[in-house]
Simulated assay, not measured.
Amino acid sequence: MTDKNHWQLLETEKYTCPTPAPVTWLQLLWRRWLQTLGVKQQHEFSAQDLQDITEIPDVSSLAAQSAFASYLAKQEQVHSEVHFLVDPPFSGTAAMARSWAWQQGRVLLSPPTADQITQCAVDTWWQQQAYQGTAWLIDDLARYFLRTPQGLAFIRVWRARVLAGEFGAGLVVCDSWAFAFLRRDWPLTMPSSHCLAPTSTSLLQQVGITGSHRQLAHLSGEARGNLGVAWALWRCKYLQQQTVPSLPVAANDTTAFILYTLLLHRGLSGAELQAVLSNVSGTELKMQLLRLVELGIIIYESEHWRVTAIAYGVVREFLAGRDYLLDDF
């Protein structure tokens, strides 16, 4: 553990994603040979390294909230209206924002209903909010649209109006995949967008993950600087000695459509997923979902299908290989 606070935020264009050092085919063969012999490499963790960390990093901790509040206070002195906070999957950014908003007394706006989205009823949505002139928080912008012919008009009208200041000052938390999609769909530059800084070895140590600098740097790179993914890899791959899930050889275009849609919307119900993937039969969709659950790629909880943290890197790499629009994280 360390006394210095290593939680940081920055502007999204300043984010630099850490990545593991490239591996040649010869190095890959050598690693597999060492694994066969049971020899650990320098970046791997021993049993002694894995004793302390058992709980997910607390984004509501005093250190995390202090860094969050300090950064946003400075930004609001420069820009008084709407700020966007980009939230990579499993990063904990939205939870951090909710904790901060509660302490600040900000109003948490509720997302539009399915009917409001399809009817583009932005005024009806706004009239239902408990807004009294104070700054507000939207904690998940992915709930404000559905990638269907009728599901995008609401977010387009809402975005133009919120950026024009019609709804006052606020903080919008937007999933990184949704942010990439909406940014491509918007002809103007998205203003004042921010994110958590990539997880450093010092932050990993601060939240209780111990190891040498080389080990922690490898873990951070493997997780692409995402603290939640790093923790999942630590728990499953190293602590519990589980194999990271992999997609089957038979994974096809439908598999890719499903996984991209789940990331774009940060999880969907079965009915919502079928609406977005209307060209996929119900039987095929159900079979694909059940197979992905069996492999540990996705999970079904709270009546929504979602990609798992431990499989996130595998899914992202799979979509990259098929030229999907990726997030920047």
Score class of each variant (00 low, 15 high):
S91G: 06
T54S: 13
E81H: 07
Q77D: 14
Q41G: 05
L26C: 01
G105S: 02
H43G: 00
L37D: 00
Q35I: 05
E76N: 11
A47Q: 14
W102M: 11
A47Y: 02
S99K: 01
A67Q: 06
H79K: 06
A97C: 09
R106N: 07
Q103L: 11
K14D: 15
R106E: 11
L29S: 09
D58L: 10
H83D: 11
K14C: 12
A97W: 01
V23P: 00
W30G: 04
S60F: 05
A94S: 15
T24K: 02
P88I: 02
Q75G: 06
A114I: 12
V82D: 06
V78L: 13
L72N: 03
Q27R: 04
P20R: 13
V107C: 07
G105E: 11
M96V: 01
Q27L: 08
M96H: 00
V23S: 07
Y71E: 09
V23E: 13
S91V: 03
H83S: 10
Q104A: 12
A67M: 07
P57C: 10
L109I: 11
T93M: 04
S110M: 10
T118Q: 08
S110N: 10
Q65N: 07
D58H: 12
V107W: 03
Q77L: 12
P20N: 14
P20I: 15
A69K: 03
D115N: 11
V107M: 08
F90I: 10
L85V: 12
D49P: 02
T12A: 09
W102E: 15
Q48V: 13
R98V: 13
T118N: 04
S46N: 09
R31G: 01
L50C: 03
G38A: 06
L37H: 00
W25Q: 14
